Simulated assay, not measured.
Amino acid sequence: MPPSPPQWPISFGYALLRATLYVLFIAGIAQGGYFEALYFPNVRYSELGFTEFTQTLVLASCCILLIYIRQVLRVWPTVTLLLLAFVAASLVREQDFFLDHYVARHTWKILVTLIVVPALVWVIVQRRRFLEEFKYYSNTFAFGLFAAGTLVTYIFSRLYGRQDFWRAVLQENYIRDFKNIAEESIELLGYSLILFAMIELLLLARRIAQAR
């Protein structure tokens, strides 16, 4: 049975510090989007722009954190494996333009399948262990942030970025750039929440490892 999370409270000052850093990060990516639009009009909100690059960097950072949690700290291996597969698949999906252009069309779909299917099979085989680990994980702040980031990225951004919606808003002034900017910016926000979730999971995993 995996160990339960330590129950000692987090100090207000420590929580405030983390919240401040998260606020600064969100402000930084918002400002980066502004500079992208202002100074790099030729690549703004394209695959070579700040927003897309930052999405890749954020997802890659999430993968590194999860690998460290799973392989070094050895906390909740089935839960972190599923999270890693999810984030890694998202990272590959964000590279679809380059994979389609420089490798072959639909390459990203093959890579995502190779990542997700084995992970799902392993979690199903280890389902009892997964459910035991998830019982603890689901009651953490990290899980709440991850759920929020997933909803923002994969639900809200898709619905908010619908072409029909922006055609209804802008009517005869419709330009595809508006739709792309809105969708990609919200995606980056969602990915940032997922990064915060991985940071919180790392901090919690360190406490669990120390408690052993």
Rank of each mutant, 00 (worst) to 15 (best):
Pro3Leu: 13
Leu57Gln: 14
Gly13Phe: 13
Ser46Cys: 07
Tyr34Asp: 09
Phe12Tyr: 14
Val112Gly: 12
Leu38Tyr: 08
Phe146Thr: 03
Ala182Leu: 04
Phe178Ala: 13
Ile175Lys: 12
Arg128Met: 09
Ile155Cys: 10
Gln163Thr: 07
Ile194Cys: 04
Glu47Ser: 04
Gln126Asn: 08
Pro6Gln: 05
Asn173Glu: 14
Ile110Val: 15
Val123Cys: 07
Arg74Lys: 13
Ile10Gln: 08
Phe146Trp: 02
Phe156Lys: 08
Arg44Ile: 06
Thr20His: 03
Leu202Pro: 01
Ala85Tyr: 06
Ala205Gly: 05
Ile26Val: 08
Leu17Trp: 04
Ile181Trp: 02
Glu133Leu: 09
Leu17Ile: 15
Ser4Ala: 15
Phe40Pro: 07
Leu48Gln: 11
Ile155Met: 15
Leu202Cys: 03
Gln55Asn: 00
Leu99Phe: 03
Gln171Glu: 14
Leu48Val: 00
Ala142Lys: 01
Phe196Val: 04
Thr113Ala: 15
Ala37Thr: 00
Tyr22Gln: 01
Met198Tyr: 02
Lys179Cys: 08
Ile115Asp: 03
Gln31Ser: 09
Pro9Thr: 00
Pro118Glu: 12
Glu36Met: 03
Val125Ser: 14
Val121Asp: 02
Met1Val: 06
Ile69Trp: 00
Leu120Gly: 04
Ala89His: 01
Gly190Ala: 04
Leu81Arg: 12
Leu91Cys: 08
Leu189Gly: 02
Asp100Phe: 07
Phe25Asp: 05
Ser61Leu: 11
Ile186Arg: 00
Phe40Ile: 11
Val123Thr: 14
Tyr102Asp: 15
Ala119Asn: 13
Trp108Gln: 08
Leu204Ser: 03
Gly144Glu: 05
Tyr102Lys: 01
Phe143Arg: 15
Ser11Trp: 09
Gly28Asn: 03
Gln55Arg: 00
Gly190Glu: 00
Gln126Glu: 12
Ile155Thr: 02
Asp164Phe: 05
Gly144Phe: 09
Glu172Met: 11
Lys109Pro: 06
Thr107Asn: 12
Val125Arg: 07
Ile67Cys: 04
Ile67Ser: 12
Asn180Ala: 12
Val112Arg: 14
Tyr34Leu: 01
Thr54Pro: 04
Tyr137Asp: 03
Val58Leu: 05
Ala211Phe: 00
Arg206Thr: 09
Val23Arg: 02
Ile186Asn: 04
Tyr154Leu: 13
Gly161Leu: 10
Ala211Ile: 00
Ile29Ser: 00
Glu52Pro: 01
Gly144Met: 06
Arg207Val: 11
Met1Thr: 08
Leu57Lys: 08
Asp177Arg: 11
Arg176Thr: 06
Ala197Phe: 12
Met1Phe: 07
Ile155Glu: 08
Trp166Ser: 03
Ser11Tyr: 09
Leu66Pro: 03
Ala27Phe: 00
Phe178Thr: 11
Cys62Thr: 10
Ala104Glu: 12
Leu203Val: 13
Val117Gln: 08
Glu94Tyr: 01
Ala168Asn: 11
Arg206Trp: 11
Ala119Glu: 04
Arg129Gln: 15
Met1His: 10
Leu91Val: 02
Val121Gln: 07
Phe40Gln: 07
Leu38His: 05
Ser138Thr: 13
Glu36Pro: 03
Met1Ile: 15
